[in-house]
Simulated assay, not measured.
Amino acid sequence: MTSVIPGARSPEQARANAAAAGLPPLPGTTLEAVGDLYDRRIRAQVHHRW
């Protein structure tokens, strides 16, 4: 799962956003929880847009 964080308004914010790519992956249980939340609360509102 990926997500873009738009709106960096300074070089420092852009560097911080890019540095996040170096963080370790989220645990599988966290990814499952995010997927479940998306399916239950968000999918119906946005998924048809793509």
Rank of each mutant, 00 (worst) to 15 (best):
residue 40 R to N: 06
residue 28 G to I: 07
residue 24 P to I: 01
residue 29 T to K: 01
residue 49 R to C: 08
residue 35 G to D: 05
residue 7 G to S: 11
residue 48 H to M: 01
residue 43 R to Y: 02
residue 14 A to D: 10
residue 9 R to M: 08
residue 22 G to F: 09
residue 28 G to E: 14
residue 24 P to K: 07
residue 11 P to H: 09
residue 5 I to C: 07
residue 12 E to C: 01
residue 41 R to A: 07
residue 46 V to L: 02
residue 33 A to W: 05
residue 24 P to V: 03
residue 19 A to E: 15
residue 19 A to D: 15
residue 35 G to H: 01
residue 2 T to D: 12
residue 15 R to V: 07
residue 35 G to R: 02
residue 7 G to L: 11
residue 7 G to C: 11
residue 17 N to Y: 10
residue 50 W to G: 15
residue 40 R to V: 05
residue 22 G to I: 06
residue 48 H to P: 00
residue 3 S to K: 15
residue 6 P to N: 09
residue 47 H to A: 15
residue 10 S to Q: 12
residue 9 R to K: 09
residue 36 D to H: 03
residue 42 I to H: 02
residue 20 A to L: 15
residue 24 P to H: 04
residue 18 A to S: 14
residue 11 P to N: 10
residue 44 A to D: 08
residue 30 T to Q: 04
residue 49 R to S: 03
residue 49 R to N: 06
residue 36 D to I: 00
residue 23 L to R: 14
residue 24 P to A: 14
residue 44 A to Y: 00
residue 42 I to R: 05
residue 2 T to S: 13
residue 6 P to V: 09
residue 13 Q to D: 15
residue 37 L to G: 07
residue 28 G to V: 06
residue 1 M to S: 10
residue 17 N to E: 04
residue 19 A to Q: 15
residue 47 H to Y: 08
residue 35 G to S: 05
residue 1 M to P: 02
residue 10 S to Y: 08
residue 42 I to C: 07
residue 42 I to K: 04
residue 32 E to A: 09
residue 24 P to R: 07
residue 46 V to E: 07
residue 41 R to V: 01
residue 27 P to S: 12
residue 10 S to C: 12
residue 35 G to C: 00
residue 26 L to I: 03
residue 22 G to E: 13
residue 8 A to S: 14
residue 46 V to T: 11
residue 27 P to N: 07
residue 28 G to N: 10
residue 18 A to Y: 05
residue 18 A to R: 15
residue 31 L to Q: 05
residue 4 V to K: 13
residue 45 Q to W: 02
residue 28 G to H: 05
residue 30 T to H: 01
residue 31 L to V: 08
residue 32 E to H: 09
residue 38 Y to P: 06
residue 20 A to W: 06
residue 30 T to I: 01
residue 16 A to Y: 08
residue 16 A to H: 08
residue 39 D to K: 02
residue 48 H to E: 00
residue 37 L to N: 08
residue 33 A to L: 04
residue 27 P to R: 12
residue 5 I to M: 13
residue 35 G to Q: 03
residue 10 S to A: 12
residue 10 S to E: 10
residue 21 A to S: 12
residue 6 P to M: 01
residue 3 S to I: 15
residue 23 L to Y: 04
residue 43 R to D: 11
residue 1 M to V: 10
residue 29 T to L: 03
residue 44 A to I: 00
residue 25 P to L: 11
residue 36 D to Q: 06
residue 43 R to L: 04
residue 39 D to R: 09
residue 16 A to V: 11
residue 35 G to K: 03
residue 21 A to Y: 04
residue 14 A to K: 14
residue 3 S to F: 13
residue 22 G to W: 06
residue 9 R to S: 06
residue 31 L to D: 03
residue 7 G to N: 14
residue 33 A to E: 04
residue 8 A to R: 06
residue 15 R to G: 00
residue 13 Q to W: 03
residue 50 W to T: 11
residue 18 A to E: 15
residue 47 H to M: 02
residue 2 T to G: 04
residue 25 P to M: 04
residue 10 S to M: 11
residue 12 E to R: 12
residue 9 R to D: 06
residue 46 V to M: 03
residue 39 D to N: 09
residue 23 L to P: 00
residue 15 R to S: 10
residue 45 Q to A: 12
residue 7 G to D: 13
residue 23 L to Q: 15
residue 50 W to E: 13
residue 22 G to Q: 14
residue 49 R to G: 02
residue 37 L to P: 00
residue 20 A to R: 14
residue 20 A to Y: 08
residue 10 S to P: 07
residue 24 P to M: 01
residue 38 Y to K: 04
